[in-house]
């Protein structure tokens, strides 16, 4: 089975290469990849759930806005994302439920401070083998 995502090298930043059988899986895997850059995702449990609804102009914009929303849960609300369940996804809108755990310094080790999710070289595409996305995070 193909890996759900890879973390790629970029001089001043961190890149994510994410795969999925369909758009829902792609967006769900992108959420896991983001958590993995912030902390070790295996150490995050589902303590609370939150409803999310994000819009975009097209697939790349939707992906950036989706990850922006998830990043804000961490940077603005101190919540780490354990997993997400995608309820509905189209090119302009994604509706999902995120399972999150409030950050506790004795439980979670933070690996990277992500400044932002960038549009730099953003790519979301569908091919015969499935969906792929490339996203660069500014750290």
């Amino acid at each position: 089975m193909r890996k759900p995502y890879e973390i790629i090298d970029h001089t001043a930043d961190i890149g994510l290469h994410v795969y999925g059988a369909d758009a829902a899986e792609l967006f769900s895997n992108a959420a896991s990849a983001l958590t993995d850059v912030i902390t070790d995702h295996r150490g995050v449990v589902a303590a609370e759930s939150l409803n999310l609804s994000v819009t975009g102009l097209d697939w790349p914009d939707l992906m950036v806005n989706w990850l922006r929303e998830l990043l804000y849960l961490w940077s603005g609300k101190d919540l780490l994302v354990a997993s997400v369940e995608i309820e509905q996804v189209s090119e302009q809108k994604i509706v999902a439920v995120a399972s999150v755990e409030p950050f506790r310094s004795e439980r979670h080790r933070i690996h990277n401070e992500i400044k932002a999710v960038t549009y730099h070289q953003i790519d979301v595409s569908e091919s015969l083998t499935g969906w792929e996305a490339k996203i660069i995070l500014d750290v």
């Binding site: 932002a116 999710v117 549009y119 730099h120």
Partner: peptide, 23 residues
């Protein structure tokens, strides 16, 4: 920065500026 990138991204098409890179 992020808020204004998002806001300008929504408006850029109306301005008729063809960008080589969304960022």
């Amino acid at each position: 920065c992020d808020d204004f990138l998002a806001r300008m991204n929504k408006q850029i098409h109306q301005l008729g500026i063809d960008l080589p890179d969304r960022q």
